[in-house]
Simulated scan of single mutants.
Amino acid sequence: MAGSAIGAGVIAVAGLLVLGLSAAGGAAAESQRLAGTADAAALTAADGLSGAVPGDACGLAAAVAASARAEVASCSVDGLIATVSVRSGFGGFTVVAAARAGPPPS
């Protein structure tokens, strides 16, 4: 009888560990996906600023973010440099990533 209780406890603890590690792995994957989305949005905004792509820089960034199931949290322009922050939800939490793009420093 006692061995059954210990076995059930070990299985329950192992199940909780697997669940926690799965959640942590999913959050890490979402963070990396969102970082890539921020990079793509900032690069697209910088292309808009340089004239390589027609349109409003922040509007272009918002379109890229929306295509990746995210939204632009902030978008700022300084000359030809665009700084974009995007956010998305994961498991009831908000995940945020930011990126900056523009011409290389002279």
Rank of each mutant, 00 (worst) to 15 (best):
L19D: 00
A101L: 06
L21M: 12
V64A: 11
L49E: 00
G9P: 05
I81T: 12
V72H: 07
V13L: 12
G92T: 03
R33N: 01
G15D: 06
A12V: 09
A23C: 01
A70H: 01
G3F: 04
A70S: 07
M1G: 14
S76A: 02
A62W: 10
V64T: 12
P54R: 15
A41R: 05
A5I: 07
S85Y: 08
M1H: 14
L80R: 14
A14F: 14
G20Q: 04
L80F: 11
Q32S: 14
P54F: 05
P54T: 05
V64G: 03
T37R: 01
S85Q: 13
L16G: 06
A82S: 10
A57V: 05
L49D: 00
G25C: 07
A62C: 02
A82P: 07
R69Y: 03
Q32E: 13
R33F: 01
D56P: 02
G25S: 09
A82C: 04
P103S: 11
M1K: 12
A24W: 04
A61G: 01
V72G: 00
G59E: 07
V86R: 00
C58I: 06
G36E: 10
V84N: 03
L80W: 08
R87I: 00
S67G: 14
A38R: 02
A40L: 13
A66I: 11
V18F: 14
G36V: 09
T44H: 02
P105F: 05
E30H: 10
Q32M: 12
R87A: 01
A2Y: 06
V84Y: 04
V10L: 10
G91F: 15
S22N: 10
P105Q: 14
S106G: 13
A46Q: 06
